[in-house]
Design a protein around this nucleic acid. Structure first.
Length: 257
DNA sequence: CGGCGGGCAATG
DNA sequence: CATTGCCCGCCG
């Protein structure tokens, strides 16, 4: 099954900064502690981006900015997945990340129904609901609950998610524990033209996943790059420049090297 | 080997 | 719809 809408996710036009459409404030589907309205503009959660500057993403339809307590999502209504998910981590946030995992996935009601993944799309799809901002990073119960929004998920191979990808997440947490200050992490999917889809909602299945790590203290950055398939191993990170070339997104405007 | 972190599905 | 038990891979 293919979805031509997935195509545009990788066909980048000119890399122009665009002002993104924002939604009127809405609500999560879940009850408390998710009933508090959360901002739908990165202007209200700049803390997740180094020097407050979000990535520069080429214009495409149905992009929406979503702020959560512990991460920010740029969501695509075409792929019904994140374009990227941004976090700011440090030693304290990782030390606080001892919440009990609560597997309560939910469709994010701040997104229009036509733009969002539903639980049904993932069910019996053969793919896992793979967190971009990991549940294991979440420092509070509220943040933990919010991380189960499908706006923070992509259809991910179960073996890769629980294997090499989990190791990358663990390695990143371990790095942050020993870092001097804030570490910014940006995680996301990469789609090929004619990407397969799952469910009646046709949620696009990414071919690759990346995780960019930027240590603001040292100015160093690197990126993990994995295929979304069984049998992947953790290999040497790629450079920031290489990541930008592969994705067409300037994740660290003015900072990356 | 047990514990942990990534998940799933059956049960009531 | 919440609880519970289970599978899997990795690591110390």
């Amino acid at each position: 099954m293919n979805n031509s809408a997935c195509r545009s996710a990788l066909v980048f036009a000119l890399a122009l900064s665009v002002s993104l459409t924002t939604l009127a404030r809405g609500y999560f589907n879940d009850p408390a502690p998710l009933t508090v309205p959360h901002p739908t503009s990165f202007a209200e959660c700049r803390q997740f981006f180094p020097e407050g500057r979000p990535p520069v993403v080429p214009k495409r339809p149905a992009l929406r900015e979503l702020c959560y307590e512990a991460f920010a999502v740029l969501h695509s209504g075409e792929t019904k997945t994140p374009v990227f998910v941004a976090q700011r981590l440090n030693r304290k946030s990782i030390e606080d990340a001892d919440e009990r995992r609560a597997d309560k996935f939910f469709a994010d009601a701040r997104l229009p129904a036509a733009e969002r993944a539903e639980l049904e799309d993932y069910k019996r799809s053969g793919y896992s609901r793979g967190h971009m901002a990991p549940a294991g990073d979440m420092p509070t119960p509220t943040a933990m609950a919010q991380s189960f929004s499908l706006a923070n998920m992509v259809p991910q191979n179960a073996q890769q998610n629980g294997g090499s990808w989990a190791k990358i997440e663990q390695d990143t947490r371990r790095y942050v524990l020993r870092a001097k200050g804030d570490v910014y992490v940006i995680t996301g999917p990469v789609f090929e033209p004619d990407a397969p889809t799952i469910g009646e909602g046709r949620v696009c299945v990414p071919r690759y996943l990346f995780k960019l790590v930027y240590d603001a203290t040292t100015g160093r950055s690197w990126a993990h790059w994995q295929e979304n398939r069984e049998g992947e191993r953790v290999s040497a990170p790629i450079t920031y420049k290489e990541l930008v070339q592969r994705t067409g997104v300037e994740f660290l405007p003015g900072l990356g090297k």
